[in-house]
Simulated assay, not measured.
Amino acid sequence: MSKILNVDRLRKSYSSGGNDLTVLEGISFAVPSGTTFAIVGPSGSGKTTLLGLCAGLDTPDSGTVEVCGQDLGSLTEDQRAALRNEKVGFIFQNFQLLPTLTALENVSVPLELQGFRGAGETARTLLQKVGLADRTHHYPSQLSGGEQQRVALARAFANRPEILFADEPTGNLDGHTGQRVVDLLFDLNQEAGTTLVIVTHDMELARRCDRILRLQGGRMLEPEEPSKP
């Protein structure tokens, strides 16, 4: 099985108060195409930093990240952005919907900007799949947190990404609502055959994935631990 994400000896530090604070040190792992992968660890362990590096939203001090066969370090910022637009999807804890656009527009406009034909119909189909067929013309402020995250799910899968990064996708939701969002996420992911990489503090969610990467203090504890028989 081919590897859609390869991370090798990744290191990242930030300057804080005149000192260098190492956030990640010696991180190496690979994610096979079409699998699900969880990154877990306590607050401050480097989870979100690692996700940003894997998605090309930030650059490491040393080490390499390859996504969809491309070494992110060899790409310009514009090339990394193009790669994300074409092959990568995102789901964030705080939804990140545009408040002036309806649910339908939040899903369809990014497709239209990429020249995607049938953007409106694709958006309607995805919103129907996440149970929001009757909320297409509602604005984010008119939707509950769970509904907003379901719009975000539809948007994330709209461009048919090869790999999807989810940063604490249930972090702002109550337990029942979060469970529904997780079920939809895994259902949509299985249907699309997308590779899913999730940052989460929720071990129940992590155990639904094929592999778990545990971080503590910026280092790996148990790389790619099998979580299912």
Rank of each mutant, 00 (worst) to 15 (best):
H176L: 14
P169K: 13
V197K: 02
D202R: 15
G17T: 01
P161W: 11
P99M: 06
D8S: 15
F92C: 01
L75Y: 02
L221D: 05
G69D: 02
P229L: 11
Q216D: 10
Q128N: 15
L21I: 15
H201I: 05
T36P: 08
G171Y: 07
L196F: 00
I198F: 05
S2F: 06
A81L: 07
D58S: 11
N189L: 04
P60E: 01
I91P: 02
E105R: 07
L127H: 02
V88D: 00
N94M: 12
R124I: 13
T195Y: 02
P110N: 10
E204Y: 09
G26Q: 08
E225H: 09
P42D: 12
L51R: 04
R11F: 04
E112C: 09
G41L: 01
Q190Y: 08
I39E: 00
V109S: 09
F92K: 01
A152H: 06
V67K: 02
P32I: 14
A158Q: 09
A158L: 11
S43F: 01
R150M: 06
H137G: 09
Q190R: 15
P60H: 04
E112K: 06
Q70P: 10
A158C: 10
G89Y: 06
Q148T: 03
A82F: 07
R160P: 07
R80I: 11
G120K: 06
N94G: 07
L72I: 00
R11C: 14
A82S: 13
S16D: 13
V23C: 05
S15V: 14
L10D: 00
E86R: 14
L57F: 14
Q96R: 15
T48N: 00
Q96N: 13
F29M: 05
H201G: 04
F90K: 04
D202E: 12
V23N: 03
E25T: 09
D61Y: 01
L132M: 12
F157L: 15
D58G: 03
L127S: 06
R117S: 11
E224R: 08
R211I: 08
R117A: 14
H201M: 02
R135G: 08
G17R: 02
Q114N: 15
R124K: 11
L127W: 06
L132T: 04
P161N: 12
Y14R: 07
N19M: 13
V109W: 04
Q216C: 13
Y139M: 11
S141V: 15
S45G: 06
G17K: 03
G178V: 02
R207S: 14
L173G: 08
R84Y: 07
R180V: 15
L97C: 07
G34P: 00
R160L: 12
E66G: 10
F95S: 01
G73S: 03
S13F: 03
P60D: 00
Q128H: 12
V40R: 03
P110Y: 06
L53Q: 02
S33N: 05
G175D: 13
D210P: 09
L83H: 12
T48Q: 01
Q114D: 15
R150A: 02
G34E: 10
H176V: 13
I198L: 07
E105V: 03
T64E: 00
K47R: 00
D134F: 03
